[in-house]
Design a protein around this nucleic acid. Structure first.
Lengths: 236, 236
DNA sequence: CGTGGCTTTGAATTGACTCAATAGGGGTGG
DNA sequence: CCACCCCTATTGAGTCAATTCAAAGCCACG
């Protein structure tokens, strides 16, 4: 809960929003920013409650959850290191934000953060660009949720995860088999794709049986045949 | 295709983005802006093509469509008068934008428009706020698409449309019956909600039979029992 | 070695879809 | 003015993908 000692030490310094600021400008944020650890399962915002904080995610993975009155849940977004967290200009939070893994945040109180935004057009523009991108992503996911089959959803999801895992520490680059760890449980994958745990499990087994992927055990997964996976991500 | 003669005549002057500008600032936009009529069914952007224009919608309704390679479609957004149209900072358009009714746009070439944005922090901030709101809306709709039943989707949709219709020219205000025209065909409603035409039709007749709504004919619809509709929008 | 969380597998159910046919409604041209 | 046509909507019957309910299986951890 101490002030971030030095932004220069920041793990996501060059990828996060504040990467747009020069050293002088950083001071303004640095005064506001508090480093905060969040344990797996802990929440940093609750749908319907006041929107109190914004943050940059330093490490870990967060989920953004929408839910119905009777408890059905949908993960409407996943946040990774360097992603921006929170809803500026919103009095109430629309979604619950919960850590899927232990996570580290650089937290800013919302209202003061908005003032900094207003004073730093470059940062505001970057946030606008990110928000526009997030909007496109969300809309794209609407197509997936509403119109794609379970098989297409799973195949597409695995390709996304492979791409993300591949971007850091890629091996067996183009076309070849790749192995990585899924950061999500079956239940969480189901919540992302709008399926049930059982359907996710069955589709994974089906892909394994078909030789498209391998499941060595644990969270680990091997994409044996990326081409075939792409075909299944498109097929009706 | 002529220059907008006078922004002061603009039907959405005070609600659109440019409402934030003073007369001097308006000049910069006015030079770029072209009034453009779009016929029902005509498109102004195509998914995958270059993102050429941004615009303010002056009148009419547009749809934002995402589609799979094999032709399945999902309406990922509806645009109403005063809404902002297009994707600034995107080289390629992610969605096809098509007029559902005859429409009037105030069109700006994308790149010059971005420059104006950059010179006018107030307008840029308004766009950011709208985009954040659109993002929340889109995420909320993800919950609907993925987790709600056909009946909940229809009930929620009708309440939304009633609220929109009610905001201008409301009658029988709180709790009482309201009548208005749906701007969408059954097929378009199906595309919005991720259902089929038949399911939409069946749910509508079910609500009519239950006495919750009335269907006088044509596009017209009466919400006889808003409370009951709200209950059905929430029920599992 | 037992316990709790996650995953897999099976069997039965079902909500929404597909296919198919009928019915309305508005506009056009004879 | 009427007959016709096209487009949209309704209704019915049958199917199927994904869900629900239920029961093991696996594995990590204390």
């Amino acid at each position: 809960m101490a002030h971030t000692d030095h932004c220069s030490d920041c793990a996501v310094r060059d990828q996060a929003l504040c990467g747009s600021l020069n050293d002088t400008e950083l001071q303004a944020l640095n005064v506001l920013g508090q480093s905060r650890h969040v344990a797996r399962g802990e929440s940093v915002a609750w749908a319907g409650e006041d929107s109190v904080v914004c943050a940059n995610l330093l490490s870990g993975v967060l989920k953004l959850v929408a839910s119905t009155a009777d408890g059905r849940e949908q993960i409407v977004g996943l946040l990774y290191p360097a992603d921006f967290v929170g809803q500026p200009y919103a009095e109430q939070a629309d979604f619950t934000i919960t850590a899927l893994t232990d996570a580290e945040l650089c937290v800013f109180p919302r209202v003061p953060f908005e003032r900094v935004l207003e004073d730093h057009a470059r940062m505001e523009r970057l946030l606008l660009q990110r928000t526009l991108q997030a909007l496109s992503d969300a809309r794209g996911r609407m197509l997936t949720l509403a119109r794609k089959s379970a098989e297409e959803k799973i195949a597409g999801f695995l390709l996304d995860m492979a791409a993300r895992a591949g971007s850091s520490g890629c091996r067996g680059s183009a076309g070849g088999p790749v192995t990585f760890d899924l950061p999500l449980t079956r239940g969480q994958i189901a919540d992302v794709l709008g399926l049930t745990i059982e359907t996710v499990s069955r589709q994974m087994t089906k892909l394994k049986t078909a030789g498209v992927i391998g499941l060595p055990g644990g969270r680990s997964i091997t994409i044996s045949d990326p081409k075939a996976l792409e075909v299944r991500a498109e097929a009706a």
